[in-house]
Amino acid sequence: MTTFRNFLVAGTALAVIGSGQALAQQPARAQPVTAAASPKKPATVTLLDRIVISATMLNEAVIDALAPVSTIDGEQLSRTQAATVADIFRTTPGVAASMNGDDPATSINIRGLEQYGRVVVTLDGARQDYWRVGHGSGSFYVEPELLKEATVIRGPVSNAYGSGGIGGVVSFQTKDAGDFLNSDERWALSEKLGYESSGRGFTTSTTGAYRFSDDADVIGNLIYRSRDAYEDGNGAVVPWTGENVLSGYLKTTLRPADGHELKLGAILQNYEDFVTGSSGSPSPTLSRYDAETTNQTYTAGYTYLPDDNPYVDLSVNFYHNRTRAEQTQVWPKAQIGNFRY
Score class of each variant (00 low, 15 high):
Gly280Arg: 01
Val245Leu: 14
Ser247Asn: 15
Asp313Ser: 15
Val312Leu: 10
Arg324Leu: 02
Pro306Gln: 02
Tyr319Asp: 08
Gly233Asp: 11
Val237His: 02
Ser283Tyr: 06
Asp307Gly: 13
Ile267Gln: 12
Trp240Val: 06
Gly301Leu: 03
Val245Met: 08
Pro332Ser: 02
Arg324Met: 00
Leu246His: 02
Leu254Asp: 03
Glu292Gly: 08
Pro284Leu: 02
Thr253Ala: 12
Glu261Gln: 11
Glu261Pro: 00
Asn309Ile: 09
Asn295Ala: 15
Thr253Tyr: 05
Glu243Thr: 05
Val237Glu: 11
Thr241Val: 06
Gly233Trp: 07
Thr253Gln: 11
Thr328Arg: 13
Lys333Val: 03
His260Val: 05
Asp258Val: 02
Gln329Val: 07
Trp240Glu: 06
Glu326Asp: 14
Val245Thr: 08
Asn295Gly: 13
Gly265Ser: 14
Leu254Phe: 14
Glu326Gly: 10
Tyr249Trp: 06
Thr323Glu: 02
Asp290Leu: 07
Thr285Trp: 13
Gln269Glu: 12
Ser315Asp: 13
Pro256Asp: 05
Gln296Ile: 06
Val238Ser: 12
Thr294Asp: 07
Gln269Thr: 07
Ser283Cys: 05
Thr253Arg: 14
Thr276Ile: 12
Tyr249Ser: 04
Gly248Met: 08
Pro282Lys: 01
Glu326Pro: 01
Tyr249His: 11
Thr303Trp: 00
Leu268Gln: 04
Glu261Lys: 09
Gly265Gln: 09
Gly233Leu: 09
Ser283Asn: 15
Val238Leu: 13
His320Gly: 05
Asn234Met: 03
Asp258Pro: 02
Lys251Ile: 08
Ala266Phe: 10
Tyr311Val: 12
Asn244Val: 14
Val245Gln: 13
Pro284Val: 04
Leu264Cys: 12
Trp240Thr: 04
Leu314Ile: 12
Gln329Glu: 15
Gly259Glu: 03
Tyr311Lys: 15
Leu262Trp: 03
Arg322Phe: 00
Asp232Gly: 12
Thr293Met: 06
Thr293Arg: 12
Phe318Lys: 00
Thr276Leu: 12
Gln327Ile: 00
Leu314Pro: 05
Phe318Met: 06
Gln335Met: 06
Glu272Thr: 09
Asn317Gln: 08
Tyr304Glu: 01
Gln296Pro: 00
Leu246Lys: 04
Arg288Met: 14
Ser283Gln: 07
Gly235Met: 10
Val330Glu: 03
Tyr271Gln: 13
Ala325Cys: 00
Thr252Arg: 11
Thr241Lys: 08
Asn309Gly: 02
Ala257Asn: 04
Asn321Lys: 03
Pro284Trp: 01
Pro306Ile: 01
Thr303Pro: 00
Phe318Glu: 00
Thr297His: 01
Leu262Tyr: 02
Asn317Thr: 07
Gly259Phe: 04
Pro239Ile: 07
Val275Trp: 05
His260Lys: 04
Arg324Ile: 01
Val330Tyr: 02
Asp258Leu: 03
Asp273Asn: 14
Ser247Met: 10
Arg322Ile: 00
Asp273Met: 13
Val238Ala: 11
Leu250His: 03
Leu254Lys: 06
Tyr319Ser: 11
Ala291Asn: 10
Gly301Trp: 01
Ala325Lys: 04
Val312Asn: 01
His320Val: 02
Asn317Ser: 07
Ser247Arg: 10
Gly265Arg: 06
Asp313Tyr: 09
Tyr289His: 13
Asp313Pro: 07
Pro239Asp: 11
Thr297Gln: 03
Leu286Gly: 05
Thr241Trp: 09
Arg288Phe: 11
Asp290Val: 01
Pro239Thr: 04
Gly242Ser: 15
Thr328Asp: 14
